[in-house]
């Protein structure tokens, strides 16, 4: 870890100005990921701007009937917030599938979006990694890649985005509010994270100095039919091998609207709106779900140790959609959701 200076920001503008005035500055909220990365010498900011005094911790209704989540509300406060539990239970479930209670108590909503990949090679400075050191090469390709991506990969990176919360946010089509040197703007969730392409060191579409101030959840919460299914190597406190945020709007047994977002399979929460559109008007049956799953994974490819993810993702999609349809917790789900 390198020496760094530290300042508290008390207003969003101050934070943004402070960032602009330093060369290698970083914002810090809960610090649950940044601190690790600094200890591993993956990130070496020379100045940290503490955000926890900013007035961005509120969770409140917005005029359009949605819900606004403050960027500094903790993951725990968000997951257990009565409005979130009632109107966006998919989001609650996804948050609670991630990390541990201690981490969720520290981690903030804005920070959750900023999590970096858990690729072994990214974390180990002894090995080449294009995301950490552009141009040095990708060690995961041809290496041990059990936890790596199967969709949207590039020749320079097969890392995955590690968040659970973001998978639900993608499914719910949240909007990210940011503040920067040039004022405020909003980013559609689908546009926030990016695919690696030939610039895997860039995780998202934030412009230099921009700060996440909040997340807007649209009015539609799919609170009647939803499921967050997370598959991993132990029952809690492990990143997803594959996760699925599934949300359905049903009329009888007919699908009126559907959202499917995948975690653990790509550099960003993975959605395919064509597949979702194709589900509209279809009966909510295993057959329909299987077709959707196959279609969603059409371009998927494994890299050796993660080959199994292609099939696992298909099965997980089918199961998640089934759970969303039936809204009954079977024995498996009792185990998988025994987390909080």
């Amino acid at each position: 870890m390198n020496p760094f200076t530290y300042s508290h920001a008390t207003a969003v503008d101050d934070a943004v100005r402070d960032k602009a005035s330093h060369h290698d500055a970083a914002y810090i909220g809960g610090g649950t990921n940044l601190l690790d990365l600094m200890k591993e010498n993956v990130e070496r900011p020379t100045h940290l701007i503490g955000l926890n005094r900013l007035p961005l911790t509120k969770i409140q209704n917005d005029p359009e009937g949605g819900l606004r989540l403050g960027a500094l509300a903790t993951n725990a406060d968000t997951a257990w917030h009565p409005e979130v539990e009632k109107r966006y239970p998919l989001l609650s479930q996804a948050i609670l599938a991630g990390a541990s209670p201690q981490l969720r108590n520290m981690a903030t909503n804005g920070g959750n979006l900023m999590q970096r990949t858990r690729c072994y090679y990214f974390y180990d400075t002894a090995t080449p990694c294009n995301k950490r050191e552009p141009g040095s090469g990708c060690s995961a390709i041809g290496g041990y890649n059990r936890i790596h991506a199967i969709l949207g990969t590039s020749q320079s990176c097969i890392a995955t985005h590690p968040s659970d919360m973001c998978i639900a946010l993608a499914a719910l089509e949240a909007v990210v509010r940011v503040s920067g040197p040039n004022g405020e703007r909003t980013i559609e969730f689908a546009d926030f994270h990016r695919l690696p392409g030939n610039a895997p060191h860039i995780d998202n579409t934030l412009r230099p100095g921009e700060l996440i101030t909040g997340l807007d959840l649209p009015a539609k919460g799919f609170e009647k039919n939803y499921s967050y299914l997370k598959l991993r190597d132990r029952t809690s406190y492990a990143f997803a091998l594959v996760s699925v945020a599934a949300a359905l709007e049903l009329e009888g047994n007919t699908i009126k609207d559907a959202r499917i977002a995948l975690g653990g399979v790509a550099h960003k929460p993975w959605r395919d709106t064509d597949v979702e559109d194709a589900l509209k008007g279809q009966p909510a049956t295993a057959d329909t779900f299987r077709k959707a799953a196959t279609q969603l994974l059409q371009g998927a490819r494994g890299f050796g140790s993660n080959d199994f993810k292609v099939e696992l993702a298909k099965r997980a999609i089918v199961r998640a959609l089934k759970q969303a349809t039936e809204m009954k917790q079977g024995p498996t789900e009792a185990f998988l959701n025994s987390n909080p």
Partner: peptide
């Protein structure tokens, strides 16, 4: 990873041992 002759999951996040839920 035999390419590097190095253990790659050398941390508590990726070296999995049971948690209470297991």
């Amino acid at each position: 990873d035999h390419k590097f002759g190095r253990y790659m999951n050398h941390n508590y996040a990726e070296y999995h041992i049971p948690v209470n839920a297991d």
